[in-house]
Structure formats: C-alpha cells, structure tokens
Design a protein around this nucleic acid. Structure first.
Length: 118
RNA sequence: CGAGCCGACCGGGCGGCCGCGUCGGGACGUAUUGCGGGUCCCGCCGAGGAAAGUCCGGGCUCCACAGGGCAGGGUGGUUGCCAACAGCAACCCGGGGUGACCCGCGGGACAGUGCCACAGAAAACAGACCGCCGGCGAAGGCCGGUAAGGGUGAAACGGUGGUGUAAGGGACCACCAGCGCCGCGAGUGAUCGCGGCGGCUCGGUAAACCCCACCCGGAGCAAGGUCGAGAAGGUCGCGUCCGGUCUCCGGACGCGGCUGCGCAGGCGUUCGAGGGCUGCCCGCCCGAGCCUGCGGGUGGACCGCUGGAGCCUGCCGGUGACGGCAGGCCGAGAUGGAUGGCCGCCCCCGGCGCACCCGCGCCGGGACAGAACCCGGCUUACAGGUCGACUCGUCCG
C-alpha cells in the first residue's frame, strides 16, 4: 500500500501534472509525469473514472494500482509528479498485467519528460 | 420418500509475507514553557443484507413563521402497532388454489362534466339492420307495433318456466340473480346472518377531471458552526474543461448579478427610505438605513462525526405487529477518500483424464455489490447453503 506521504491530494496538483506533464499510454493505462515539484519524494495520483465500472470495480482497480506503484517507488526521482489514469480495459486486468503496463509506461513518460526539458 | 408453501438465518474458512485508517499507550525529537504537529513501535477495532435505488417517514441543522382564505401536494376497507410513515400485524371484502397459502395503489359513478377503440342497427337512453306481427298497396315497398329470435362485441334492454297477446314485452305470476330501503341479531369496527318491502333492472372508467374525509412550511451534513489569514470576503447564475460516492455535487478558467469591504456622490429616520409573511390574495408586522459609480483580492484547519427510537439474553403481557422489566455488551468513521495487495491449503460446483470400486490428478469457476450525518421502512439485484413450521400425494405400521 502507498504511504500517505507520497499521495497527491490537491486538485491543483492533478491539474498541473495533467496540463504540463508528459504523457505515455501502454496497455490499459495512461501515465502523466512532470518534474520540478517541491518536496524530496515523488507525488503520485490515480484517476479511475466512472467509465471503468461500478464502485466496486473502480475501487478494486485503485487498490491494485496503488500496490503496484508502491513496489516501484524507488525507481522514481524525487520531485516528480505522476498521475496514472485507468482506461476501461483495466477493469478486467490482473495485478500482473497492471504491473507490466506500468513498467512499460513509466520509463517512457519519464524519458519524454527529460526530452521536453531540453 | 416425492411435490409444494411460508418464515428465519448464513452469504466462504484457515494460514504466511507486505501494507492502510480511527482510537489508546510508549519512545525519539521540534519548541523557553504550554498548545499543536512530525517519525517510529505496541495494542484494540475496521463494510452490507441489501452499505445499492434515493421512493416514503423521522431525528438533527439553518431559514421562515400573528391570523384567515385560495391554490398546490400526499394518503384512502376496518381495528390496532409505531417517534412517524405510502411501513407492520390481525381481521373484513373480492379473486385464485384440492390444500398449506397467495394476489389486490380496496372511499365515492343517483353532485356534475368527459371518454368508451374495432366490430355492431344501436355503447347509456334514445333509437329497429335482419326477423316477427298488424294495416295499406297489383308489386317494389310504405306506415305502425315489438327487445322473444339472428348476427357483432370484453360488455346488448335481468335468467328459466308459465299466463297473456295480432306478434310481443316484468304487462302479469312463481323461483333465482342483482340493486335500494326497513327491521331484528352478532361484532369496537370494516362487515356478516335472517326476515320483510319496493320499483321490476340501473354498464364500465375516478392510475380522466372531480367530490368526500384526514394530513402537509422550505432546504439539506458540500446542512450548519468555530478559528486562522487578510485592503474581507460571501453568495447566486451561465459557458468550456476535468473529476467524484454521478437525478446531485466538487475543482480550474472566463463572464455576469446580489450583498459585504475601501473611496466618491445622492436619498431617508413617525412628513418613514426600505423590507418580511419562500406560490398568490386579504390582512398584519419589522423598521434605520438605503441607492449609484469605481476598485482590489482570498479560498486553510477544526467541530458537526458517531452511544443509538442501539445490540444480545431471560422473564412477563398480547392471536400478532409490539410493549414492559431485569442483566450484560460497545460494534467503522475515511475526506483524491482507509477497511486491502500477493500467495498457499481446505470447502462447493463444472469439465477432462486415469480407475472394477473406494477414489486420484489437472484446468476453470464461486454471486449481487463498498459505509460518507444517523435511524425506521419500501423497492430492486443476488452464486450457493442451513434450520424450522405447515400442506398435498404415495408407501409402511
């Protein structure tokens, strides 16, 4: 589970990452990444919209994604904002599939962030 | 044993590793102290029978509230239960079932208005398409009588038999069905039973308007409140985008209205500006502030927040819903939103393979669904399972 110190809580933070960050889609996930935020740790946020399913399904996807993200915290540079959006196909994906999609999308988004900064 | 019917209950279990939230305790550490916050450790607890739909009823909060009338909304057999209800119980009536039992948006259609498709001559009270009878005519036919017969329809001038008649008709008679009135009896009552009388016969629809009886202020915890900050913000509406627990609501940006703040100007204080009675009118009340123009800027923390019409057990009253008494128990409180993630074993179901059988192995599946202020109901969804009462049929004694 994700420690509360890493959670994104303000609507403004979400808007900043979605608007200015780099985007990368892999499988059933879209990862937004933005550098230069304050703090010594990464900031993580999840978006699981109603199109994914009913409340039980959305909650299950959220919990699985949180667990997968917690296992990958060490790979994220400090001060990075990450927002993961789940697409409707995520409703039927297992944790293994979600983890694989994250492993594919996270480096892509982070690399594109580096490109944009140049 | 088979079939059925009603009610109550459960709705995966055990373990390992890694985690999250509230509360309690402890350690470290910031700080002059205190308040408060941070990190770590330990302990307790941590989704549902529907948490769902948001359809009713309450508690709670804010706003409003002299009184009367109109409009609007809701309910609808009776008697009870309940804080209340559109809920529940028992009973009544009507319908279904051999039965246990089930079903019913159950006031009024002589207060009035409207509607009744298609078919049919005719659909609600007047009328005769065929037929029947009488009269006239050479005849086609015309005039009159007639609801017994035909055909249509969900429904057609009560039904059967007789008297009577030109033919017929409650025109008359007997019985039956239905309606109304009266009396007696039973019941708190809805209603039921019995007897008599009447005219002889009147359709349905009120989930059409309507009438009758009774009840009803509005918005909702993102209600509302406290503190902080500060040149004070608050609130409402619209548009675009994003989001949530998505009929509702939040966030970002933009525009506009009202009020507040700062500045400027004007009007007014019993000669009364301006308001209120959350739909309208009568009527009544408050009343010292109000109007116009210009201007800048903010959105954090906490309370509400969970101990209550609470749950369990026993006894008593009641046919029952339920009530009373005694003892015991504390069982979630998040806020980008905790209550979990991964794995193993067991249980149930299905398929395949092996096997004489007992079984064994592999694969797949195990529902509906996630608290958001709290209760009482209703409705809807749901894999599988447990227990009990009762009914019908068959067999045995």
């Amino acid at each position: 589970m994700l420690s509360p110190a890493y959670r994104m809580r303000r609507s403004g933070e979400f808007a900043a990452v979605l608007r200015w960050g780099a985007r990368s889609r892999r499988g059933c996930l879209v990862v937004h990444a933005r550098s230069g935020l304050t703090g010594s740790q990464p900031h993580l946020g999840l978006i699981v919209a109603r199109s994914v399913g009913n409340s039980v399904t959305r909650h299950r996807v959220t919990r699985r994604l949180r667990a997968q993200l917690a296992a990958r915290l060490a790979a994220l540079p400090p001060g990075t904002g990450i927002v993961v959006r789940a697409l409707p196909e995520a409703a039927t994906a297992s944790s293994a599939v979600l983890g694989a999609d994250l492993d594919a999308a996270l480096p892509a988004a982070l690399g594109r962030r580096a490109d944009r900064r140049r």
